[in-house]
């Protein structure tokens, strides 16, 4: 269980990292925390020719509020965001979801952007970013572009990132006066979510984002539904997610959790909103 051989570059600036990506393309991978990716290297599931370590790029290790968004740099570790004193006030949903990401010992090294880059359908940060209509800031040597989170994640561990691009940051919009709810069902504390539900309730309506079921986080918006209409909407959503079964849960169980936990989380968010 040892990685296959690769070259290693410790980039001291984003430009340096991008130069390597421009040159090596798909053969290079960014190392940013590595709490999922290193395990894949050890198992030889992934065999890049070159790793670009961006964790010493100081300019990427920033949490900033810019024009109503919280911009989290590529080198910001999960523990840093969790410990950020304004997190609860600015990003209540992230404050609810982030403690579910791995364990203390992996949040201390893992990055927010790394989790989003990895695009695991059961991970909390991609789910939160999609739920909040956040964006991914991609950059190559030639240009920068912003991609909506929902467009960024194209499937199970597949993203819209081009080979020469890296995530420079992600941004979470700060929205006042919304109610939030988050719950996750996993076999054990810290495991991959069987179902994770994030609800956002505002005067405009209800938004429910679900992770762990489809091959990427999926979102539905409903104008102020309640009662059986909400149940119907949840039921439709549950089926639309096309749940699969594995050793931990049946497809039917996942649908059931979307209905029941989804409902509970929405109610939490409604309560929090009012």
């Amino acid at each position: 269980m040892k990685p296959a051989a690769f070259d290693y570059v410790r980039a001291s600036s984003a430009e340096e990292a991008l130069e390597v990506l421009a040159k090596e393309g798909a053969d290079a991978r960014i190392l940013a925390g590595g709490q999922s990716f290193m395990a894949m290297l050890n198992m030889r599931l992934a065999r890049p020719k070159l790793l670009v370590d961006i964790m010493r790029i100081g300019s990427l290790d920033r949490i900033e509020e810019i024009e109503g968004e919280i911009v989290v740099g590529a080198a910001v570790r999960q523990a840093k965001l969790l410990g950020w004193d304004k997190l609860k006030a600015k990003l209540p949903l992230v404050a609810l979801a982030l403690p579910w990401t791995g364990h203390v010992q992996t949040r201390s090294r893992g990055t927010i952007c790394g989790s989003i880059a990895h695009a695991d359908p059961s991970a909390e940060m991609p789910l939160s970013l999609v739920a909040l209509s956040g964006s991914v800031h991609l950059r190559s040597l030639k240009k920068r572009r912003r991609v909506r989170a929902a467009d960024y994640i194209t499937g199970m561990m597949n993203t819209a990132r081009a080979d020469e691009e890296m995530i420079e940051a992600v941004s979470f919009p700060v929205v006042a006066e919304h109610g939030y709810g988050f719950r996750e069902i996993a076999r054990r504390h810290g495991d991959f979510a069987i179902v994770a539900c994030a609800a956002i309730v505002s005067s405009k309506g209800i938004r429910l984002a679900v992770g762990g079921v489809a091959d990427r986080p999926e979102v539905r918006d409903w104008p102020g539904l309640s009662g059986s209409a909400l149940d119907d909407a949840l039921n439709r959503f549950a089926y639309e997610l096309d749940a699969r079964q594995d050793v931990h849960a049946t497809a039917r169980y996942r649908r059931e959790l979307v209905r029941r936990v989804g409902r509970a989380v929405i109610e939490e968010a409604v309560q929090c909103h009012s």
């Binding site: 269980m1 410790r10 709490q35 395990a39 198992m43 964790m55 364990h103 203390v104 201390s108």
Partner: peptide, 27 residues
């Protein structure tokens, strides 16, 4: 375990709890 779950290899690096099995020596 060498995949970051069991925690036996936990050390601190610059004060941060770190799975040594998910860390490269050169890092």
């Amino acid at each position: 375990c060498e995949h970051g779950v069991c925690g036996a290899c936990t050390v601190t690096v610059d004060g941060m709890l770190t799975r040594a099995c998910l860390t490269l020596a050169v890092q």
